[in-house]
Structures are given as C-alpha cells and as structure tokens.
Design a protein around this nucleic acid. Sequence first.
DNA 1: GAGCAATTGTATCAATTTGTATCGCCCCCT
DNA 2: AGGGGGCGATACAAATTGATACAATTGCTC
Lengths: 243, 243
Amino acid sequence: MMADQRPHLLVVDDAFDIREPLAKFLDKNGFRVTTAENAAAARSRLNAEKIDLVVLDVMIPGEDGLSLCRYLSANTAVPVILLTALSEETDRVVGLEVGADDYITKPFSQRELLARIKNVLRRVGDAATAGKPEGMDGTYLFEGWTFKIGERELRNPDGVLVPITTVDFYLLSTFLAYPKDVLDRDKLLGLAHGMQPDIFDRTIDLQVSRLRRKIEPDPKAPTYIKTVRNKGYVWCTDVTQAP
Amino acid sequence: MMADQRPHLLVVDDAFDIREPLAKFLDKNGFRVTTAENAAAARSRLNAEKIDLVVLDVMIPGEDGLSLCRYLSANTAVPVILLTALSEETDRVVGLEVGADDYITKPFSQRELLARIKNVLRRVGDAATAGKPEGMDGTYLFEGWTFKIGERELRNPDGVLVPITTVDFYLLSTFLAYPKDVLDRDKLLGLAHGMQPDIFDRTIDLQVSRLRRKIEPDPKAPTYIKTVRNKGYVWCTDVTQAP
DNA sequence: GAGCAATTGTATCAATTTGTATCGCCCCCT
DNA sequence: AGGGGGCGATACAAATTGATACAATTGCTC
C-alpha cells in the first residue's frame, strides 16, 4: 500500500461542527488530516504520528490551547496556527509570544485558513525551496545552457558560470523536470493543490520573474518560461539530459 | 465503470415542479445534476460529493438561501448562481454581497440559466483557456506560418515571432486541430454542448476577432478563419503537420 | 557579536490581457 | 422595403501578471 505523502495536519478543536467540516475541507484540498478534541488527545497524536502542522483552537477544555502551543514551540519544531475567538491586538501579541507561527480569528473562512497553512508550511518547512524534485540528477541541456543538478551549477551558452540562488535552483529544477507541462503556482511551490484565486500568493510570480532575468535572452519577451494566464507557467524549449 | 465526467451541478429548490424539470433539462444539456430541497440537504450533498456549481433558490424553507450562499462563499470555492423572485436592484446588490457569482430572477428561461451556468463555469474554472486540445503536439504549418505547440510560438511567413496570448494560443490550437470543421462557440470555449442560439456569449466572437487581427492578411476579409452564420467559425486553409 | 551583503518576502504601481456593454452594419426573411 | 437577429468593431472596465522599491531575514566576515 502506498503511503499518504501529503502534508499531515493535526486539527485540535473541541467543537465537532467546526472540527469535522474543517478536516473534510482540508482533506479535499491536499492534506492528510488527523483530529483531536483536547490537548491530551493532541499530545497523544503528536507522539504517535509525524505531524507537519497543528491547527489549534485556543479555547479548548482542560489544558489551555496557549499552554499546548507554548509547549510545542519550546520542545518541537512543529509549526502551529492558532484559532482565536477575539480579534484584539492583545491576542495577536499573545499568540505570537507563545510561539504560534500564525493565527486566525473566528469566524474564519476555510479558504483563508488553507492559504495560511500553505504559507506557514512553505516558510517553516521550506521543503519546497530546499532540494530538488524527486529523482532528479545529472546534467540538463537547453539552448546551449548547462545545468548540473549535483553541482548546483548553471552555465550560459558561453560556458560562463551564472550564479543562482536556492530558489532559482529549485524553480529551474522543477521546470526542467516537467518541460512543456503547465505548472500551477502550487506545484511550483511544491505544495498540494487547491488554493483558490482568493488569497493570492504572488511569491512565485516574483521568483519566476527573477529567474527570467537571469536566463532569458530577453526577459521582456520570455522564450523559455512562458506565462499561462490563470494557470501558471510552462517551460517551453527542448531539454536534453546528459549523464 | 466509467465515471461521469460532466460538470456536476447541485440544484437547490423546494418547489418540485421547478426543481425536477430543471434538473432534467440540465442533464440533457451536458451536466450531471444532483438536487436538494432545502439547505440541510444541500449541505449534506456538498459534503458527500464534488460539486462544481450550485443553483440556489433564495426562498427555501428553513435556513435562508442567502445564508447558505454566504457560507459557501466564505468556506468553499464552489460557485453559486442565485434564483431570486424579485428583479429589484437591491436583490442584485444583496446577491453579489453574499458572494453569489451570478443571479437570475424568476420567472427565468431555462436557456438563459444554462447560458449563465456555462458562463460562470468558464470564468471560475477556466479549464478552457488552460492548455491545448488533447494529444496535440509538434509543429503546424499553414500559408507560410509556423505554429509550434510545445514552444507556444507563432511565426509569420517571414519567420518573425508573433506574440500571442494564452487565449490566442488555445484558440489557434483548437482551429488547427479541427481544420475544415465548423466549430460552434461551445466547442471553442471548451465547454459541453447544448447552448441554444438564445442568449449568446459574445466572448468568443471578440477573441476570434482579436486572433484574426494578428494572423489574417486582411482582417476585414478573413481567409483563414471564416464565420459560419448561426453556427460558429471554421479554419479554412490547409494545415500540414511537421514533427 | 556588529556590520555588511545577498536573498527572499511584502507592498504597490504599471502594463497586459480579457470580459462587458454598445453601436452599427449586413444578411436573411417576410 | 422594413425588421430582427447575428456578427464585427470600439470603448471601457475588470482581472491578472510584470516590475519596482523597500523591509525582513539569513549568512558570512571581521
């Protein structure tokens, strides 16, 4: 049986009619979801399974949510998003003081929470910008350019080394792994799909723009990376792989 | 068993003699249809199945339609078309305020609702302008022009690169995939068939017009893309395919 | 540990691209 | 010849993407 490779969330809220619909929503949007209705159950789950992020209601019976959050922040690396009832500034301060990575006030829209979850996962785990797409290796050639995965080296047609950043490297790797395929922004960020064009994360646009400036002959009229409106970007030239 | 791939609509109306005929009509016109007679049933359906669009009567017993609409807008990405009894301007404002994507006043023509459904699906999903027709690839030649699918490049007979937008690309791809075939507007939009010549969506006309301006020697007297009155458009010149 | 440099994210503004609303012409029909 | 519908074209508005400036962060040097 294949393992569920989606990011694993733990939703902690005692209100069934908030917890369960939210879990279903997140499941439908690319996440594996486990739920808990109090701090004790949450701790148990955290011990039993690998959790990538916790969505935590501060108002749970028994041990306070803030207490659990403080514990997680001090003793683990698991990021936390707090659900708070009040939107007062004090809450924000408190929330961040106890180590939460983000917070959102109730009532909240599921979509906004989804966006924040992805945002935090990207910031914290940064699994996306860390490495390269699975199974990539060797040397890639396109239009005279040479891109060595292992060495993290990019050379232009003249053989000159072009300095690339971590993000450049990851982006270029992803494009070269899927040439001629339209990649949406989520995919380019290495995240699960499902974000609606409501809360936009324009980070990718900027990163693509910066990569274009480094490799496109004319960044104003890109020939390698083209834009597909409402969808994302495509790598448009042929890529050959050398061992 | 093959899955039903048609867009899935949820029709919410308590009046049997409106709900059922409408469901039948929409089914015959290219949609999978599920019905519900109140908000609770609608929520249940929405949780159980993947719904692409909700047609919602605001005057339903129990929970108000506007309330359900507001909920959907805040917590899901499912687009909503409201059925309202009054045609007053206030209704329009209210409808859009609660997050409806469109609205239509009763009594309404089924054809008009059909047109609006397609319109909203196109706006929201925008699957049409996404990529290229299935299985297309390689290079197409016509009258000296060169169109490379993979590279998303169009060159005129002089070999000069002609910049094309995402829509241009999709339209041209579709035409070249079906030369000499009359394509109706639904087909060109990439939507299911069945729209009657009642409420026209003139979007395609404009897009064709814009494409003509880029490729026709004389856009006033088009030779490549010709108009077929009451039907659609045809690609009229020979197309050869190079590898 | 301070200071500097590079990188990355956020906030904005500008430029394209696309959709909507109209006007007017032309074709077809009675 | 008159009328209506369908289509071409223009102007304008909305949405999406590109570009710039600046702030925040990270990493490295001294």
